[in-house]
Design a protein around this nucleic acid. Structure first.
Length: 282
DNA sequence: AAAGATGCCTGTAAGC
DNA sequence: TGCTTACAGGCATCTT
């Protein structure tokens, strides 16, 4: 599923090929994604607009022009595929965007999402920051130099397990279930630990672990994210090098301990029974 | 305030 | 083999 690293790689890929292009057409084949697509408004705001930049906020992909923003969320199964010639529409392609670049053949961006947990929206550029998707979001993990300090400070009065705490977008964005498991393993923190029991040093270590894990995935994506341009066959996401996620019963690569599976808030939770100790006191 | 349940979806895998 | 069921997950929203 697309998490922050996948969305970041996708934004970079689209920026590379579409920045400076004109959104010549936007065709929608259905509007009932997780939220209805405001098709008329989208076309009114965007057709003929120049794409000034392609960015990411949390797990949202953004196209920006001088007056408009296009907002894409990929949900669980969403993809954006780019073709440089008219392509056969896949069965779950819900929208196709034609981008015309000066003196060049157009590009066709296909929004594909079998499970339709994703959505597409738009707004005027001046309303982007205060949009309901973004108004409540915590800091970007890769752009905040004081992430550990920040998490430590806001965790003092909270009664919640650390895994839930870092998966809550109010606190820090972009840490989904897979990366929460991986980052806690890297920081040697048990996912059940109460957030208020961890000290500043633990949070600094955890913040570094989150950043290292996400950066490694982005780096891997940079070289293996090959399914974007003119994909043939069955496009997917780059495989990740996972230490604990999906490795129930297998030996820990660090200590040889056993990877255990439990459920927290109905989410699969993996940890090493030796590396990640239950209680941290100090 | 926190924790749990719910709804939104369907491809895939597992079980019978 | 063919059917049924559980599961995966982000995120908002509602209830306890």
């Amino acid at each position: 599923m697309p998490e922050l690293p996948e969305v970041e790689c996708l934004a970079r890929s689209i920026r590379r090929i579409a920045k400076g292009g004109i959104l010549e057409d936007a065709v929608f084949f259905r509007e009932d994604l997780r939220e209805p697509i405001p098709i008329k408004e989208f076309r009114k705001l965007w057709l003929g607009e120049t794409i000034d930049d392609v960015t990411r906020r949390s797990k949202y992909l953004l196209l920006q022009s001088k007056r408009a923003a296009a907002i894409f969320h990929l949900g669980m199964s969403g993809k954006i595929l780019c073709y440089d010639s008219p392509a056969v529409r896949l069965s779950h392609t819900h929208a196709v965007f034609t981008v015309r670049r000066f003196g060049d053949e157009p590009l066709y961006l296909h929004y594909v999402d079998p499970r339709r947990f994703g959505f597409i929206n738009c707004c005027r550029i001046e309303n982007l920051e205060t949009h309901r998707y973004f108004a409540h979001l915590g800091p970007e993990p890769l752009e905040n130099r004081r992430l550990g300090q920040h998490l430590f400070e806001i965790s003092r009065s909270r009664h919640v397990a650390i895994k839930q705490f870092i998966m809550d977008a109010h606190n820090v964005v972009g840490v989904g279930n897979i990366y929460a498991n991986e980052a806690l393993f890297r920081a040697r923190i048990h996912p059940n630990t109460q957030s208020r029991e961890l000290n500043l040093g633990h949070y600094q270590s955890l913040a570094r672990a989150i950043q290292t894990t996400l950066r490694a995935a982005i780096k891997a994506g940079g070289t293996t994210f090959r399914d974007f341009l003119n994909p043939d066959g069955n496009p997917g996401y780059f495989s990740q090098n996972l230490s604990v996620y999906g490795r129930e019963g297998e030996p820990c690569r660090v200590c040889g301990g056993q990877i255990l599976l439990s459920r927290m808030t109905n989410r699969a939770t993996y940890h090493c029974n030796q590396c990640q100790i239950e209680k941290i006191k100090k």
